[in-house]
């Protein structure tokens, strides 16, 4: 059982790291601000979710788990809203979306 939890935790951690990496690659490689937003905000939120899930599996204390959950939810809500704000501001100021 313990081995199973450790394994799951490790897998989640590695998944989180991979998602962070893919977010950075997207941020660097995509052609304009909207595509970069799309790459970054989703993957990073998910990656943070994976990492805090991995830590929560190991924590063993309720308060700690609740705090991890709160932080993840906060980043989720804040990330989503700030992405939409940035995109909206960019459109309103006349940044043209990339077209092939």
């Amino acid at each position: 059982m313990n081995l199973f939890i450790d394994g799951a935790s490790l897998m989640l951690l590695v998944l989180g790291l991979l998602f962070f990496l893919s977010g950075t690659i997207g941020l660097l490689r995509f052609p304009d601000v909207f595509t970069r937003l799309h790459a970054l905000s989703k993957t990073d939120t998910l990656a943070l979710g994976f990492i805090s899930a991995s830590l929560a599996l190991q924590s063993g204390s309720l308060l700690l788990t609740l705090k991890l959950l709160l932080i993840t939810l906060l980043v989720m809500v804040a990330g989503a809203t700030s992405s939409s704000l940035i995109a909206g501001a960019a459109i309103a100021r006349g940044v043209r979306p990339w077209q092939r």
């Binding site: 601000v33 937003l37 943070l48 990492i51 830590l55 940035i86 501001a89 940044v95």
Partner: peptide, 22 residues
């Protein structure tokens, strides 16, 4: 553009949260 630079800040903020948790 300016929002691009803000995005980089977003990335650093989220990553810093993860680093602090770890």
């Amino acid at each position: 553009t300016m929002p691009d630079r803000m995005l980089s800040g977003e990335l650093m903020g989220t990553t810093a949260v993860a680093v602090l948790l770890l």
